[in-house]
Simulated assay, not measured.
Amino acid sequence: MELKRDRAWRRFRARQTGGDRVAKSTTYKPEKKWKMMYGRRTKCVRAQQLGFDYPIVTTRKLLEQQ
């Protein structure tokens, strides 16, 4: 009888023993690269979390608006 010890088995065993090499699939990590983010709203929310203005408005555009 052959034992089936594939990736799923190793992950299961690591979770049982509380190993530090376990893939934390339950934790959510937002995208860090702008090119990987889709949609203007998503980018605006992420920029607000990081604490900078998005979209970046140039000085020329600011002067034209006034």
Rank of each mutant, 00 (worst) to 15 (best):
C44P: 02
A14R: 04
L63M: 08
R13G: 03
G18K: 04
R15E: 07
Y28W: 10
T17I: 14
G39Y: 12
F52Y: 14
Q66N: 06
Q48A: 15
E2M: 09
I56P: 12
R7G: 07
V45F: 05
R21V: 07
Q49H: 09
G19R: 13
E2H: 15
V22M: 03
D20L: 07
Q48F: 10
R13S: 04
T27L: 08
R7W: 09
Y38W: 15
T26S: 09
K29C: 07
P55E: 14
A23D: 15
Y38F: 10
C44M: 14
P30K: 01
R11S: 11
K33G: 07
Q49C: 04
A23H: 15
K32A: 07
T59Q: 14
I56S: 11
L3D: 15
D53M: 08
R46D: 00
G19M: 01
A14L: 05
R60S: 04
T26N: 12
V22P: 01
A23F: 15
T17R: 04
G39T: 01
W9G: 05
K24Y: 10
R46E: 03
R11M: 14
R60A: 11
A14I: 00
E31H: 03
F52V: 07
V22A: 04
W34K: 08
P30N: 02
R21N: 15
V57M: 02
P55M: 11
G19Y: 02
M37Q: 06
K33L: 10
D6Q: 09
K4R: 11
M36W: 01
K61P: 08
K33N: 12
T27V: 12
R21T: 11
A47I: 03
F52N: 09
R15N: 08
L62S: 10
C44Y: 11
W34P: 01
L50M: 08
R41E: 10
L3F: 05
M36A: 14
R21W: 13
T26G: 03
V45E: 12
Y28V: 00
R10K: 13
Q16V: 14
K29Q: 10
G51D: 06
Y28F: 02
T26I: 03
T59N: 13
E2W: 08
Q66V: 06
R7D: 13
L63F: 12
L50I: 02
K33F: 07
R13F: 12
E64L: 10
E64G: 03
L62T: 11
A23S: 12
Q48T: 12
E64Q: 08
A47L: 00
Y38P: 04
D6C: 02
A8E: 14
R40D: 15
Y38D: 10
R60V: 13
R21I: 06
C44R: 15
G39F: 10
R11G: 00
D20N: 06
K43C: 06
R13D: 12
I56H: 15
R5G: 06
Q16C: 11
L62F: 05
P30A: 00
K35G: 05
A47Y: 07
L3W: 00
L50D: 04
V45A: 11
K43D: 07
V45W: 01
Q16P: 06
K35Q: 14
G51F: 02
L50Y: 12
G19A: 15
T59S: 10
R13M: 10
